[in-house]
Design a binder for these strands. Structure first.
Lengths: 237, 237
DNA sequence: GAGTGGTCTAGACCACGCG
DNA sequence: GCGTGGTCTAGACCACTCG
């Protein structure tokens, strides 16, 4: 039978098309129906191969009349082991960085947030939700919570610019952070914000940042498009 | 139509079964065909939901007569920002760690390896490939290359135990490392070594480690089962 | 309107591994 | 043997969006 494992064979063929330069960054593959016919497999089988490659960041897919399957380019690197913010990080690599505030409000600490920040459940916290862009493309959603009581002087207005700078002005600059990583897939809301298709791979990052006296000043959930950003960690003894 | 987006609905239902404790760690779900019938969807639709949850580490699936879909338990944490080796890392969390050497040989540096280690292409390097276990389960494949010439005294025999210790005895203990992360899927060879099913999610990590004089002493490719290990990064200013 | 990816169906056969 | 997940087929309809 010639059809055993054909999705893997297809995956290899497509990978070869990229590696050989037959399809370079930004180029569009033929429509799924045509490609499946050309390769002699059913559309579902082709889609399995495409999903695997999409997961590895090789392709992006967009629906609609002008949509299609596009070869990805090189992506910016995010250095985790650094106390600088994302904006500073990415711009130092030459990327053009923007940020859109989706939510900025005072709210009550949930059980999860209170535990991370070391405050009581129901305590007032500032919640900031931002959608962040690199080179005009949405690459990350960031939900941050700040303990309002511990940061007297911080208010919703302070969240507009660089939050780490605002914390610094309150003598609460973070000097230590702990981040946990978790590969996952985008939820429907995340898909819409990030402008990606179904089952798009993301990297979830949960962060708690502490100031010099050891108290937490930020708790955050980041969701990165794992095809649009590369994570690096540099460790020194 | 009641069937719009049903794979997402199914995913939510299954997630609820875990969260509510109806299915706890280690428990087996009904067979795919039965579950699909019970939920009123086709098997392919059910499988989409299962794949998404498997990707997120909620389930493991094994084929064969005694196979099935099993709920995952909690997983050990790997702290990247630490110069200790994996064994020390994991065992400090109470995990039982083992290592099986698959390859230990002198070979010639490829272009990629020579570039990372700063040696000439074709220079002699030691190649070590290990399969590493936590709690009897294979969780990671590690390919390491060491510049033989720079590490006079290091030979294939030294690779049997803790390599970082062996490097220390040669005054070449790594003091700095750079690691890049890349979510991907297991290749057929990796699937077999790690004992996982098709399209299993893995975290690829490429590492270069340097000793005090700034010269590279190790270049490595790690492949982690992303459902079996959790990555943490702690940063201090 | 027309063409794209996204989803879903209802089957089929295969590879594997315990009993 | 037989039940498991793994793969594949050949269709169908949907949602979206450019022209």
């Amino acid at each position: 039978m010639a059809n055993s494992f054909s999705s893997q064979r297809i995956e290899g063929i497509l990978q070869g098309w990229i590696d050989s330069g037959r399809y370079g960054p930004g180029m569009k593959l033929p429509a799924e129906r045509d490609l499946a016919a050309e390769l002699g497999v059913s559309r579902m089988t082709l889609r399995q191969a495409l999903e695997s490659l999409q997961f590895q960041g090789r392709f992006q897919r967009r629906p609609g009349r002008a949509g299609g399957t596009f070869v990805s380019g090189r992506v910016p690197v995010l250095e985790l082991a650094s106390m600088s913010g994302l904006a500073q990080q990415l711009s130092s690599t030459g990327a053009d960085v923007e940020s859109r505030i989706l939510v900025a409000e005072a709210t009550e600490a949930t059980s999860e947030v209170s535990k991370a920040l070391g405050v009581d459940v129901g305590d007032s916290v500032l919640h900031l939700r931002r959608l962040r862009f690199a080179n005009e493309e949405p690459v990350m959603i960031e939900d941050s919570w700040f303990p309002e009581r511990r940061l007297s002087g911080l208010d919703v207005g302070s969240l507009a610019g660089s939050v780490y700078r605002a914390l610094g002005e309150l003598d609460s600059a973070p000097v230590r952070k702990v981040e946990e990583l978790d590969p996952s897939v985008a939820s429907p809301v995340e898909r819409e914000l990030l402008g990606v298709g179904a089952r798009h791979p993301v990297l979830r990052l949960v962060r708690t940042a502490y100031r010099a006296d050891g108290l937490a000043v930020e708790y955050a959930h980041d969701v990165y498009r794992s095809d649009a950003i590369r994570v690096r960690v540099t460790t020194t003894d």
